[in-house]
Design a binder for these strands. Structure first.
Lengths: 146, 146
DNA sequence: CAAATATAATTGATATATCAATATAAACAC
DNA sequence: GTGTTTATATTGATATATCAATTATATTTG
């Protein structure tokens, strides 16, 4: 069994699960949109639901630090997914607006992401998923407090 | 709830859990060894248990591709954790040997990693952990087959 | 209000992730 | 045995991760 889980802990399975999911997600997203990453998709989805979000809040939601988000946004502006303008009330901030290319991309990837999630969770009962989520959240809290 | 889990899926919690764990792990490892990463520690641990492993097998175990492992190993050689020599039976391969600095580092970090894992899984019953692992492995298989 | 502090974002340096292309060696086919 | 295919690892290009230091703006405090 050593070669399947060399650390012998569920934490290894957590990492393996998310990596496999990301591979699947990236592969299927690439079929419909070529120049976008899984993380950039997540940024689009979050911006779509939270128009006025600041970069640092966005960073928290996608598990990145401010430096990473700055560079991701730069790239997404360069690739014409986003437009960035200065925030009028607080000039340290920026407004992040999805372009029409971004909107079209969202329409293309949303169904793919839905299918990806269904694929990943296929055969799991709602109870099983709820329990998974509950256990993971215990781990999250354990790690945060130390 | 949107701001806690913007995607509304357990897959987001999986990612969050592993990221929080990695932060905790890196923080505590840095207290005892300064120039090493969580992934490099995992490489040391696996090499310690599997002397004759090839780079591509190692890559699989730590969820990286061959290119990443090549560069990690380069760096670990540069930082004197590993020595690399050509494999005599198959000259495409290399032998990866842990140096005495690597051994000492292992001794320092092994207990830290044990404590990190305990911290992360604190308060979870054995059944809960087993179920978590089982569910995650279903997800892993679902993703791999598609 | 001026000085000190806090917040938002960027930049630099370095490590890692990923894909595609390549080099080299081994195994296979005929 | 030469040619083809497969396997192992490296390299180049680009994206992301992370830490520390910095810039610019806001807020707080005396």
């Amino acid at each position: 069994m050593k070669l399947e889980n060399p650390t012998g802990t569920a934490l290894y399975s957590i990492e393996k699960a998310i990596k496999e999911y990301r591979k699947l997600a990236q592969k299927n997203i690439a079929k419909v949109v070529k120049d976008i990453t899984v993380d950039q998709c997540l940024v689009l989805i979050i911006l779509n639901d939270n128009q006025d979000i600041a970069q640092n809040e966005l960073a928290n939601l996608v598990f990145k630090d401010n430096a990473s988000i700055t560079r991701m946004i730069e790239l997404m502006v360069k690739n014409e997914y986003l437009i960035r303008t200065i925030h009028q009330e607080d000039r340290r901030k920026f407004n992040l607006v999805i372009t029409s290319k971004g909107i079209k991309t969202l329409e293309l990837i949303q169904p793919v992401i839905q299918i990806n999630r269904q694929t990943a969770l296929d055969g799991l009962s709602l109870e099983e998923i709820a329990l998974l989520d509950k256990t993971l959240n215990k781990i999250i809290i354990n790690c945060k407090n130390k």
